[in-house]
Design a protein around this nucleic acid. Structure first.
Length: 210
DNA sequence: AATGCATCCAACCGCTCCGAT
DNA sequence: TATCGGAGCGGTTGGATGCAT
């Protein structure tokens, strides 16, 4: 049952942190052959990694156009806006942030934004999370929902409960639209009202405090 | 100075989707 | 049309690091 029981191959497959040598092999191989079928790429390059692992390493870390470092306020706003619209569609959101990876955005959201959402949410709802489980327990209603569409609902739920109004931020930070050339899909403004809210406060706090 | 706690980030896992056969 | 394999996505985990006590 356990797929790890195929020991003959298990010993062949490396896991865990990538070494510099592995990085170099992967970079050189892709430089020469381009990205391709990842499983065969991993074999051909002589890496004892799964294709999946190679792909992840390349996309999230080694790719030359990956931007590293702090998420700018403009990017933060954009992330919040797009998340309000699409929920946890990290790859979709990442497409609007050149050089940022879905993984990075996801991590950013979990560590920075959700913390604020949670903090803002708790005093009002008072029905969840009074325990201080750190980390993933923000998903107390998201975790058991299949991620197909529930993520969007979940996000919308968070925002609506906070009276989030993205268009409002839009007004104050117009230039973020220019930072990413990607046009935003038309917003159905039915869910958002023009109310300054806690979100505005914590977003400001976020930008100032970090 | 040592210990414990909180946070961040890279990587892995499982699932779903999509294209090829 | 059904099946299979690969790619992609979102969720989760674990190690490293920084900070507070």
């Amino acid at each position: 049952m356990d797929k790890r029981s195929c020991n003959s191959q298990e010993s062949e497959v490396r896991k865990g942190p990538w070494t510099m040598e592995e990085d170099l092999i992967l970079i050189n191989y892709i430089a020469n052959h381009g990205e391709g079928v990842w499983n065969s790429l991993a074999r051909s390059a002589g890496l004892k990694r799964t294709g999946k692992s190679c792909r992840l390493r390349w996309l999230n870390y080694l790719r030359p156009d990956v931007r590293r470092g702090n998420i700018t306020p403009e990017e933060q706003l954009l992330i919040m806006q797009l998340h309000a619209r699409w929920g946890n569609r990290w790859s979709k959101i990442a497409k609007h942030l050149p050089g940022r990876t879905d993984n990075e955005i996801k991590n950013f959201w979990r560590t920075k934004i959700q913390k604020h959402v949670k903090q803002a949410d708790t005093p009002f709802s008072g029905h969840q999370n009074n325990g201080s489980d750190h980390n993933q327990q923000y998903h107390d209603h998201g975790a058991n929902s299949s991620h197909t569409s529930a993520g969007i609902d979940e996000g919308a739920e968070h925002y609506s409960s906070l009276n989030i109004n993205i268009a409002h931020n839009d007004h104050h930070h117009n230039n973020y639209n220019n930072t990413s050339s990607a046009p935003l899909p038309p917003e159905s403004s039915t869910h958002h009202e023009s109310i300054w809210s806690i979100e505005d406060l914590w977003s400001m706090q976020l930008f100032n405090g970090d």
